Amino acid sequence: MKISNKNAEHYIWGGSCDGWDLVKNEELSVILEKMPPNTKEVRHFHSKSQQFFFVLSGSGTIEINGEVILLNKFEGVEIPPFTLHQMKNESNEEIEFLVISQPNSRGDRVLSS
């Protein structure tokens, strides 16, 4: 079955950010996320999941273990398990990106203290 943000399961996170579950099973998660300007996720890590963030439009910053990395369109970064990270949109434009997790990261998020 063909999948897109038109027919995928949608949810809102962080009050104003969108997510669409494009692939959602035990072994793999692919999520399309959209962040409005000046939004950010909560700093956290995963104890099992490795992730790959890949920007489709706009540009954002991701903080990984205290290092800030600028991600422009068609750039990505891999995040191993137990690695603190936080995606941010500090720009004046919307950002869209993919978050690919293996295995699925649901229930595997540990917030930073």
Rank of each mutant, 00 (worst) to 15 (best):
Phe52Cys: 01
Asn7Ile: 11
Ser16Ile: 14
Asn72Lys: 10
Thr61Ile: 10
Cys17Pro: 00
Ser59Ala: 11
Lys34Thr: 07
Phe53Asn: 00
Ile69Tyr: 10
Gly76Leu: 05
Ile79Ala: 00
Val42Thr: 14
Ser59Cys: 12
Gln51Asn: 02
Phe53Ile: 04
Thr83Phe: 03
Val42Lys: 08
Glu33Leu: 12
Lys48Val: 07
Ser47Trp: 11
Lys73Asn: 05
Pro37Phe: 02
Thr39Ser: 03
Lys24Ser: 13
Thr61Asn: 11
Gly60Arg: 02
Asp18Met: 08
Glu75Asp: 03
Thr39Lys: 05
Val42Gln: 08
Phe54Glu: 00
Thr61Gly: 06
Val55Ile: 09
Val30Glu: 10
Gly19Arg: 02
Val42Ile: 15
Leu70Tyr: 14
Gln50Ile: 12
Glu75Phe: 04
Val68Met: 14
Tyr11Ile: 09
Leu32Lys: 13
Gln50Glu: 05
Ile64Thr: 05
Asn25Asp: 10
Pro81Leu: 00
Asn72Ser: 08
Met35Asn: 04
Asn72Ala: 05
Gln50Met: 09
Lys6His: 14
Glu63Val: 14
Ile12Glu: 00
Glu41Gly: 01
Val23Trp: 08
Leu56Ala: 02
Asp21Ser: 15
Lys34Trp: 02
Ile79Leu: 03
Lys24Glu: 15
Val77Gln: 03
Asp18Trp: 05
His10Leu: 08
Phe82His: 09
Val42Tyr: 11
Cys17Val: 08
Trp20Tyr: 14
Val55Lys: 01
Leu22Thr: 09
Asn72Gly: 08
Ser57Leu: 07
Leu70Gln: 12
Leu71Arg: 01
Val30Asp: 08
His44Ala: 01
Phe45Val: 04
Ile12Ser: 03
His10Lys: 13
Ile31Ala: 06
